[in-house]
Structure formats: structure tokens, C-alpha cells
């Protein structure tokens, strides 16, 4: 790809403009939240990141099922790419959630069930990527990835349930949560717009990551072409 082609990349520009737009609107246009004040604006990054984290790992799960069922390497590439991009958004969700927690609860980390579940997701999928990286054989790497991709995602409800339960033993969950219906319509509109914009960014990054993965497989397959 030449520099010129790289500059004329409509999906990239669309995602970039959408993200910049929601950030500008989120920071300067919509009013501050009545209860939480300025810090609530971080939700326009936190909520979409968290949503994409779960979406990405769901895609990994679904693609893993397809791989084991059909031995379709394209599905395996999707699973691996989605997990890797998802991991970035998971990290963003945790960091922004923690900053919000510091402003709201006065501590960086309060073992809030949602944040704790997301943090466990981060390590589960970090493990997924590390294990894939340690297996040389293409087929075995795909199989191991698929099994961990399936088990890891199916485990999420149990993780969340256990953490919620464990937390409720010490303190009833009385905290004002992000996404409560108390926020007014303009804020809700901006939140939805930011989810949309970040989804575009995710799809763009996922696609680029897939191209890389596809190129790797093609390089290997090229060896198999009858000369």
C-alpha cells in the first residue's frame, strides 16, 4: 500500500471522524451530569469501551465454535483478531472505570463487580493470546485457541455472578451506576452516539488485524501451491 492509498482510506477516516466528533460533543457540548458533575463525561469513553470488550469476546466465542465445528481457518483468524483488539478496549474500559471510581468513590479500585469481572476478562484473554503465541503448529494453535475462547466466554456469567455475590456480603450495591435511567435524554443520545462511533473504530481495527492474520496464513499456504 502506498502512502497515497493509505491516506485515502474511507473506513479509517469515517471511524476517526466519528470518534473525534463524539469526544468533542461529550467534552464541550452536552451539559454536565446533575448528580455526578464533570467526571461523568468519562462515561462516553468508558461505556463504549466496555461494550466493545464484551462484543469482541463474544465474536471470539462464536468464531471459535465455528472453527471447531467446520475447521474453517477464516473463523480462527477472526477469533484471534477479535480477542486482540478486544483486549485493548478492555484495558481502556478498566482504566477509565478506575478513574471514574476515584472521582466518585474516592478510591481507584473498589472491587466493584463489573470492573472486577472485566479485569478477570482481561487476564483470561491475555492468557488466550499468550497460549496461542506459544504453539507453533497452525492447526493446534487454532484448536487450543478455540477451546479456550469458548470456555473463557461461557465462564463470564459465572465470574460475574460470583464476584457480585462475594461483594454483596460486605456492602450492599447502592452506588449510582453508569447508564442509570436518571441521566437525561441529551446525555443518553451522546452515549449512544459514542457507542456507535467506537463500534466503527473497533470494526476498522478488527478488519486491519484480520488482514494481517490473513497475510500470514497466505504466506504459509503459498508454499503449498503446486509450482
Amino acid at each position: 500500500m502506498t502512502m497515497r492509498q493509505r491516506l485515502i482510506d474511507p473506513p479509517a477516516w469515517t471511524a476517526l471522524i466519528a470518534v473525534v466528533a463524539v469526544v468533542v460533543v461529550g467534552l464541550f457540548v452536552v451539559p454536565a451530569d446533575r448528580l455526578q458533575g464533570q467526571v461523568q463525561r468519562i462515561m462516553y469513553v468508558h461505556v463504549p469501551s466496555a461494550w466493545i470488550a464484551y462484543l469482541a469476546f463474544f465474536i471470539t466465542f462464536a468464531a471459535s465454535v465455528r472453527y471447531l465445528w467446520r475447521r474453517d481457518l477464516a473463523a480462527d483468524r477472526l477469533a484471534a483478531s477479535s480477542a486482540e483488539v478486544g483486549l485493548v478496549f478492555t484495558a481502556v474500559a478498566i482504566v477509565t472505570g478506575s478513574i471514574w471510581g476515584k472521582a466518585t468513590w474516592g478510591v481507584w479500585w473498589d472491587w466493584d463487580p463489573r470492573l472486577t469481572t472485566t479485569a478477570l476478562l482481561l487476564v483470561i484473554y491475555a492468557g488466550y493470546i499468550l497460549i496461542r503465541g506459544s504453539i507453533v503448529d497452525r492447526d493446534r494453535r487454532a484448536r487450543a485457541g478455540a477451546v479456550i475462547g469458548i470456555v473463557g466466554f461461557a465462564n463470564v456469567p459465572i465470574v460475574h455472578f460470583s464476584v457480585t455475590w462475594w461483594r454483596s456480603l460486605h456492602q450492599p450495591p447502592t452506588i449510582v451506576r453508569p447508564g442509570d435511567p436518571t441521566i437525561d435524554h441529551m446525555l443518553l443520545g451522546e452515549l449512544l452516539a459514542s457507542v456507535l462511533a467506537f463500534s466503527l473504530l473497533f470494526l476498522y481495527l478488527l478488519n486491519r488485524r484480520l488482514e494481517l492474520e490473513r497475510a500470514r496464513d497466505e504466506a504459509e499456504q503459498a508454499l503449498l501451491m503446486p509450482s
Binding site: V136, D137, R138, E220, L223, L224, P226
Partner: peptide
């Protein structure tokens, strides 16, 4: 049947 290990060819057609 062909088998590759990474880019090493173990079996060829």
C-alpha cells in the same frame, strides 16, 4: 497429502 510444520515441509503431495 502435504504437511507443514511452520514453514518446514515434512510431506509433499
Amino acid at each position: 497429502v502435504s504437511k507443514l510444520f511452520g514453514t518446514t515441509v515434512a510431506l509433499w503431495q
